[in-house]
Deep mutational scan, measured.
Amino acid sequence: MAAGGDHGSPDSYRSPLASRYASPEMCFVFSDRYKFRTWRQLWLWLAEAEQTLGLPITDEQIQEMKSNLENIDFKMAAEEEKRLRHDVMAHVHTFGHCCPKAAGIIHLGATSCYVGDNTDLIILRNALDLLLPKLARVISRLADFAKERASLPTLGFTHFQPAQLTTVGKRCCLWIQDLCMDLQNLKRVRDDLRFRGVKGTTGTQASFLQLFEGDDHKVEQLDKMVTEKAGFKRAFIITGQTYTRKVDIEVLSVLASLGASVHKICTDIRLLANLKEMEEPFEKQQIGSSAMPYKRNPMRSERCCSLARHLMTLVMDPLQTASVQWFERTLDDSANRRICLAEAFLTADTILNTLQNISEGLVVYPKVIERRIRQELPFMATENIIMAMVKAGGSRQDCHEKIRVLSQQAASVVKQEGGDNDLIERIQVDAYFSPIHSQLDHLLDPSSFTGRASQQVQRFLEEEVYPLLKPYESVMKVKAELCL
C-alpha cells in the first residue's frame, strides 16, 4: 500500500493539533497551500530580480507567473513527485505547466533550498508574528487579574506546605514575570531571523556568478533584492546548502521555554482548584465526569500541561538535527523538520489560546482563602504575639514557653481530632496574655502579614508589564474561544 493518505478522510490519521486544537490561522501558515504558494512567490521574486539585473526574462513571463501564483494543481504535483521522487522539481514542473512561456526560467540558477529553506524562514517569521500578540493578550488578562487582587491576602506555599502570606495578585505576578520573559525572547528570536537568500547549491553562489558572467556586484544585488522582497532586513552571508540548523534550535528553545512557563502556571491553577481557592472557567453544560456528576475538573489547565510537556520535548529534535548536518548538509534534517517545526508552533498556539481562555474567566473564592488563612495564621502570628507581650512588660522566655504549650495543644486538636485551630481562643482565655487581649485582632490582621506584596504588584505592572504590552494595544480586544 502506498504511503500517505487522504487526510480529510475519517479513515486516515490526522494530527489532533490540526484537527482538534490549533487555530485556523496557525494551521494555514503550515498548510501545503501556504507552503507551495510561497515557493511560487519566491520563484517570481527571483525572476523579477534577475530581470532587473539584466537576464533575458520578459515582462510577459513575469506576468504569467504572477497570474498563476494561486493556480496550484495539487493532484498534478503529487503525481509528479511520485514520478520524480523530488518535491521541488515536482512543483517546478507543475508551475511550468500553467506558465508555459515562463517554464524555462522558473528556478533559474537556484537549488531546492532556495524555495525550501527560504519558505521555512518566512513561515517561522509569520508563525512567530501570530504567537506574539496571543502571548501579549494572556499577559494582559493576567495583569488585569493581578491588579484587581493585588491586596487580597492568601496563604503562600513553599514545598506545598503553608508559608508566609502573600497576595493573590502577587502570586499571579510570578506567572506574568515568566511570560514577559517569554514574550521578550519570542520577539528577540523573531527579529534575529535572517533570510537564507540566493546562495546556490553549497552556499557559494557559483551558479549565479556564472549567470551574471562573473559580476560579483550583481550577485550581491540579486541576494539583497530577493531578501528585501521577502520582507527581511538581512540575509546570511555564510550558508551551506541550507541555512544553519542552529536557527531551528533557537526558535524551538524559546517555544519550549514558553511551554515550561505555561505548565507551571496551569499546575498552580490545578492545585488551587483542589484547594477550592480558584477555578478555571466551567461552562453551564460542561460535564466533569461521566460517573461523578459533582466533579469540576480543571480540564483546560490539564490540557495545557499535557501539550506543554510535548512542546518542551520537541527542542531535542533540532538539537540532534543540527549535530548531524555533515559538511554542507545531509538530508537527516528533512523529514524531522517537516514534523517538529509545525508541531512546535501548533502546540504553542494551542496552549496560548487555551491559557487566554482560562485567564479571561478565572474565578476566585475569597471566603475559602480566608478560612485557610484562619487555619494557619495563628501559628504564624506567634512571633508577633511574643513581641507584643514583651512590649507590655512580659518575659520573652516565659511567653515563648506559654505559646509553645498552647500551640501544641491547638495542633493536637487540628491533627488528632480534625478540629479547627483554636490557638487564639486559648490565648484569649489565658490570664497571662490579658495585657494584649485587646491587640489580638490587630495582630491577626492578614494584611499585616503580606509585606509589600501589593506595592510590588503595582510597581511591576507599571514599570515592566504595561510598557512591554504597549506595541500590542491594537490587538488586545480579541477574545479566545474554545470549541473543545
Rank of each mutant, 00 (worst) to 15 (best):
L211K: 07
R194T: 05
R20I: 04
E70T: 13
R404K: 09
M89W: 01
C340K: 03
L440C: 13
L341F: 09
G169W: 02
Q320E: 04
L186F: 12
D223Y: 03
H442R: 12
K66L: 05
L155Q: 04
F160Y: 06
Y365I: 13
S334M: 03
D215A: 12
E250N: 09
M312P: 04
L211E: 07
E80V: 05
G394C: 10
K391G: 12
F195P: 05
G451V: 03
S474C: 15
W326T: 07
Y243V: 15
T350S: 11
R190G: 09
Q439G: 11
A47V: 07
G203L: 04
S306N: 03
T58C: 03
I351H: 05
I237P: 10
M389W: 03
C173Q: 06
H442Q: 15
Y466V: 14
I249G: 03
G96M: 11
I62S: 02
I62V: 07
P162K: 00
L124V: 08
G169D: 02
L135G: 06
K170D: 04
G451I: 05
Q375W: 07
L311K: 01
G418M: 14
G104Y: 09
V429E: 13
P435L: 11
D178E: 11
I373Q: 04
T202R: 01
E25M: 09
D349T: 07
E425A: 12
I105L: 09
V138H: 10
F74D: 15
R149S: 07
A348Y: 00
G259V: 01
C305I: 04
A322R: 01
G116P: 09
L42R: 03
R329F: 01
G288A: 06
A453G: 11
R245K: 12
E280T: 02
L440V: 09
D445W: 10
M89I: 00
S334V: 04
V475H: 15
D87K: 00
D32K: 07
S151I: 10
R40W: 08
P318R: 00
M181P: 03
A453Q: 03
E425K: 10
K147F: 07
A392C: 05
M476H: 15
Q63N: 09
R371T: 08
S151V: 11
D120S: 05
E220W: 11
K35C: 09
A77S: 07
S112Y: 03
I72T: 02
F433V: 04
L186A: 12
K199L: 01
A150E: 04
G393R: 06
R426K: 13
F212K: 06
V88M: 14
F449S: 06
G5C: 08
V364E: 03
Q241W: 00
T227D: 06
T166G: 08
P16R: 14
V475R: 13
D120V: 08
N336Q: 12
Q356Y: 15
A453F: 02
G156T: 03
S454T: 14
S334Y: 01
A110H: 02
M389C: 10
L124C: 04
Q286W: 01
I386L: 05
I57A: 07
R196G: 09
K75M: 13
I339W: 06
M316S: 10
P153V: 12
L183Q: 11
A206H: 06
G419T: 11
A136V: 15
D430W: 06
R33Q: 13
D332K: 01
L69P: 03
V457F: 04
A146S: 02
P471E: 14
R404C: 10
Q286I: 00
G96F: 13
I122K: 04
